[in-house]
Design a protein around this nucleic acid. Structure first.
Length: 484
RNA sequence: GGUCCCGUGGUAGAGUGGCUAUACAGAGCUCUGCAAAAGCUUGUACAUCGGUUCGAAUCCGGUCGGGACCUCCA
């Protein structure tokens, strides 16, 4: 029923849970040093749709974990004393680097949670959102195990992973075929500050640097104060919270290498498992108006930016769902507008159907997704295809509004689809607040219209339009809607 | 340098060796006093040059163009 593209095999494979009573999904979450931008949003919306499809189409319970990286170069840099990134809402900085880091990252973590929620991602769907700094012990244990197994070494106050030793016993490059002989000249290789045996080795534990936050770490009877390397947190947390192997591990394409490759290596080396995850799924990047999003091109948008411009986050979610997750998506303001219109139309259909079905609220309504829609979702999350089938379904049921039972059935189907898409609401059409002056004008026009005084009726319509309202004539009365 | 991806109608974007989505925008119609909303109808696109094939936009190769990754950017 479900099949997903697996980066491990570079092909679409049928998805069978390791344990049908609980599908374990681990998603690489944000580094909380700033608010989410469009690219982040795409990644989060992708994972959300994935876990929803596993639940709704696959019918499996899900344990979804998304980590919060609250310790890394950027969070340290931006939370350090005198940083321009420090915001007044965070309060005063202290002289304790670790406390500053904590305050700083907690601030952006709560911003992040808010961002997720306005994008239609429900906190209830998370099993846990672990913070890296709360799993330091587990990471240290893993690092010791890796060193004990002969795949790690300490050098100059840091601890490294020995890729060459590992590659002798295991396969390195399962997610991403690297070609060490052909590293392009000019590619930045940050070998200057640390002393690695080989350039392909990566850091497990970074030695303490001047005023940075640090943790003590006992390795082979020696204390090595420092902080965890980037990859180790995901290895440790996926194991401790979900247990290995997990079903699906997700992230952006850029994480295939080195992050995921190294996570995987650490798990195999330290936990002695064959695999960290059965499926590795990666979402493609996003372009803005045909160009890679970047600050220098001036097309770098955060969710807050778009909200300030007056865009509804659910329209943004819908626009992000317009393309397949493995294809580069060209996000444009035209496409956002198109998404908004399309989404609003379906929302109006839902409200009409609620009226037709005589329901105030269809939140609890259950129904079956049209089979071809479910098929599309299950086929490596082909959301564009699912949307196309949904529109066809709606077209075929356009005349259902005269039949309450049929209306209810379509509503149920839409509800099931929305359990995956999460862009519509099934509660009553919100009442519009109509100012008395407008109401008076409308009443006057209705009277003029009833008296077939077209000239006056038209004059009043124009007046209403100029005041920002659309008056729609019905059989037995009118409705007013604000112009948007 | 290496590895890899992509190029579809005005826009966004699926799909597929033959039946050529879907949405938004546009056009026409129905309904409306006129509108709005809604519904219906409509658009033959797949970079380019070759090849394979009865048949290719879909497979193969060349070319052109765009992009990604190659040690901490989703």
């Amino acid at each position: 029923m479900l099949s997903f593209y697996n980066t491990l095999t570079k092909s679409v494979e049928p998805f069978e849970p390791l344990n049908a009573s609980c599908v374990k999904i681990y998603s690489c979450g944000p580094t909380v040093y700033d608010v989410a931008h469009m690219g982040n949003m795409r990644a989060f919306v992708f994972t959300d749709v994935l876990q929803r499809v596993v639940r709704e189409v696959g019918g499996y319970p899900v344990r979804w974990v998304m980590n919060i990286t609250d310790i890394d170069d950027k969070t340290i840099r931006d939370s350090s004393q005198g940083s321009e990134k420090w915001r007044s809402e965070m309060g005063e900085q202290s002289s304790d680097a670790k406390a500053n880091l904590r305050t700083f990252t907690l601030f952006f973590e709560s911003e992040f949670r808010r961002d997720l929620q306005v994008l239609g991602i429900s906190m209830e769907h998370f099993y846990q959102m672990p913070r890296a700094t709360e799993y330091i012990d587990d990471m240290q244990t893993l690092i010791r195990d890796i060193v004990d197994a002969g795949y790690g070494y300490a050098s100059e106050g840091s601890v490294y992973f020995n890729v060459a030793a590992y590659a002798k016993d295991y396969s390195y490059g399962r997610l991403f075929a690297i070609d060490a002989e052909n590293f392009r000249e000019g590619v930045r290789i940050d070998a200057d500050e640390y002393d690695r045996e080989s350039v392909s080795d990566f850091v497990l534990w970074k030695g303490r640097k001047d005023s940075e936050p640090y943790w003590d770490f006992e390795l082979d009877g020696e204390n090595i104060p420092g902080r965890p390397g980037w990859h180790i947190e995901c290895s440790a947390m996926s194991k401790h919270i979900l247990g290995l192997p997990i079903d699906i591990h997700t992230g952006g394409v850029d994480l295939r290498f080195p992050h995921h490759e190294d996570e995987l290596a650490q798990c195999c080396a330290g936990y002695h498992v064959d695999e960290q995850a059965r499926f590795w799924m990666h979402n493609e990047f996003l372009e803005i108006e045909g160009k890679k999003m970047s600050k220098s091109l001036g097309n770098f948008y955060t969710l807050r930016d778009l909200e300030k411009m007056g865009h509804n986050p659910l329209d943004i979610r819908f626009a992000l769902l317009a393309g397949h997750y493995r294809a580069v998506l060209n996000f444009t303001f035209d496409s956002l507008q198109a998404a908004s219109t399309a989404r609003t139309r379906v929302q109006n259909i839902i409200w009409d159907l609620l009226d037709a079905a005589g329901l105030d609220d269809a939140t609890g309504l259950t129904g079956a997704m049209p089979p071809d829609v479910a098929l599309a979702f299950g086929n490596d999350l082909n959301v564009p295809q699912a949307l196309a089938r949904m529109h066809e379904y709606l077209g075929a049921n356009a005349n259902v509004k005269s039949d309450p039972d049929a209306a209810r059935e379509v509503l149920g189907a839409l509800k099931a689809i929305n359990n995956v898409l999460a862009v519509w609401t099934f509660t009553k059409r919100p009442a519009v607040n109509i100012p008395d002056a407008i109401r008076t004008l409308a009443d006057q026009r209705w009277a003029a219209r009833s008296a077939k005084d077209w000239a006056d009726a038209d004059r009043l319509r124009t007046e209403l339009t100029n005041s920002g309202w659309t008056m729609k004539d019905g059989k037995d009365g009118y409705t007013l809607e604000p112009l948007s």
